[in-house]
């Protein structure tokens, strides 16, 4: 075939290519902006801003998760996922409240297990700031039970698989 035409076509295609990636997403989140990949499963966290959970350490280091489920997997096996960190190094743990999509203190949150709302990794522990919110959600979305932060054990996690 004739090369000049092919090269002209190539120039055209190359010129077109940038418009393919021209799509820009404005950063919608306020406050904590999800970044990096999940410290447990490696998924890209900013892709799922509605579920992003974060652990902040005393020294300012952060670990992001694409959902509360991976957050708890991490917390329950810190030795495996962050060998250099201790539980007492953790300054704060934050999850996104389902109804407001704003970060709340994970230790004070209530989690609904077994609902029909799926997270990025399937079944999720859906977080709420208050217990009445969790109760309403449980009713609306056929949840099984409400668990506070302290009562989430490796056995609870088994039920999510």
């Amino acid at each position: 075939m004739n090369r000049p035409l092919i090269s002209l076509l190539n120039v055209l295609l190359l010129a077109l290519a940038p418009t393919l990636w021209a799509d820009t997403h404005p950063a919608a989140a306020k406050g904590l902006v999800p970044k990096g990949s999940c410290a447990v499963c490696g998924m890209h966290v900013p892709k799922f801003p509605d579920w992003a959970a974060v652990v902040t350490f005393q020294d300012g280091g952060q670990a992001w998760f694409d959902g509360p489920k991976d957050l708890f997997t991490y917390l329950q096996d810190l030795k495996r996922y962050a060998p250099k960190r201790q539980a007492q190094d953790i300054a704060s743990i934050q999850v996104k409240s389902y109804y407001t999509l704003k970060h709340i203190d994970a230790r004070k949150a209530f989690y609904v297990l077994g609902s029909d709302v799926m997270g990025p990794m399937g079944k999720e522990l859906v977080p709420f700031a208050t217990e009445p919110q969790a109760r309403d959600f449980l009713k609306d979305h056929r949840g099984q039970k409400i668990i506070p932060f302290q009562e989430i054990t490796p056995a609870t996690m088994k039920a999510l698989e």
Partner: peptide, 13 residues
């Protein structure tokens, strides 16, 4: 023409 075409794409961007 090709330069104008590329210019058009750049203008759009």
């Amino acid at each position: 023409l090709a330069a104008l075409f590329v210019g058009m794409l750049l203008h759009a961007r």
